[in-house]
Design a protein around this nucleic acid. Structure first.
Lengths: 177, 177
DNA sequence: GCACATCTGCGCAAGTTGACCAGCATTTTC
DNA sequence: GAAAATGCTGGTCAACTTGCGCAGATGTGC
């Protein structure tokens, strides 16, 4: 009864291959993403049934979405908290101008607890998302970050609660105009 | 040749159901997640082949990971930039103490461009991740946020580049000790 | 030693996938 | 206006995977 969508996400060639490179999301695309987001375990066939369109259409749409980059992948979403890292913090780094962002990012990438990093405007130069097992260990992670050459200062903000967990669905619906 | 993993992520019952509620990740678990992250389109059977274990084992592990919450889901990962929202910003909100965080979060949740929101320590009360089509529209979104009752001040930082895209793999490997 | 937990390997029916094709409606191009 | 391109539909086919059950092998702790 269940199907696999992940697979179709990379089908090589299909009669219905669409090359519309243009941007923009269709209402059907949005519904498709929405459906997959809600029930990732259903498959192309199920989607087709639910959306009331032909299977080939769903496959073509999915191919298009993936090839356009709208849908990055269908990888497993890991929850750091369940993994034993319940502490999340946002750390703003001030860097020495001499060191470029690239080398800095490479050094940060070596620290597993650094889940994300952006160069930003404002007083700081980089904003990182960091996790740790405990507050004490968070300090340890930050120390490791500070040990990286080029980091002048680190301002840490601890995330107490996740009010809105990472989501894109509303955006998808909004984009389907 | 390809398989669907998403499906197994919710298998009802299997002879090998494991109820180990304890935390911690196994080396096999880590390899499994790693494999799925790298090639989301392969399936349980393929995984079993690649990891050199029985299919039932892979299915049991996956069930366990999902039931434990380590793997949240296998939903499609949407890229806001490809959707037409290339501007990302982190906005720190200062709230009037009278308004609780919950109602504030509910109001923020109504704005599609708000992808994430955390309550945080420090000078600000909330940190949100916001996207927009253009810088001009970002201003518009921020205005909408400011219009929410209880927001005293908003400090915005624009993300210039994504140095380290959201990742959890290194953490998974690290946790598999 | 015994119970318990976990992995292994096998089997089967049912369902899905991938690929292809012809037909048809709509939109774009000449 | 006619031709061409594009997109959706509905059907078929073989090959593969899934879900589920079961018996046996292995390993660990009391």
């Amino acid at each position: 009864m269940l199907v696999n969508l992940r697979r179709c996400a990379s089908r090589k060639a299909h009669t219905l291959v669409i090359m519309t490179s243009g941007t923009g999301i269709d209402a059907l695309d949005a519904k498709l993403i929405e459906l997959l987001e809600a029930e990732p375990r259903i498959g192309v066939l199920e989607c087709a049934r639910r959306l009331g369109v032909a299977r080939g259409t769903v496959q073509a749409r999915l191919d298009k979405l993936v090839s356009r980059g709208v849908v990055r992948d269908f990888g497993p979403r890991v929850d750091p908290a369940a993994l034993g890292y319940p502490v999340t913090a946002f750390v703003t780094l001030e860097l020495r101008q001499a060191v470029g962002h690239q080398p800095m990012a490479q050094r940060l990438a070596k620290i597993p607890e650094v889940l994300e990093a952006h160069t930003v405007t404002g007083a700081g130069d980089m904003l990182c998302r960091i996790v740790a097992r405990t507050n004490a260990e968070l300090q340890d992670v930050i120390d490791r970050v500070l040990a990286s050459e080029g980091v002048l200062r680190a301002t840490t903000v601890i995330a107490l609660a996740e009010q809105i967990p990472h989501r894109t669905l509303p955006l998808v619906k909004e984009a389907a105009s």
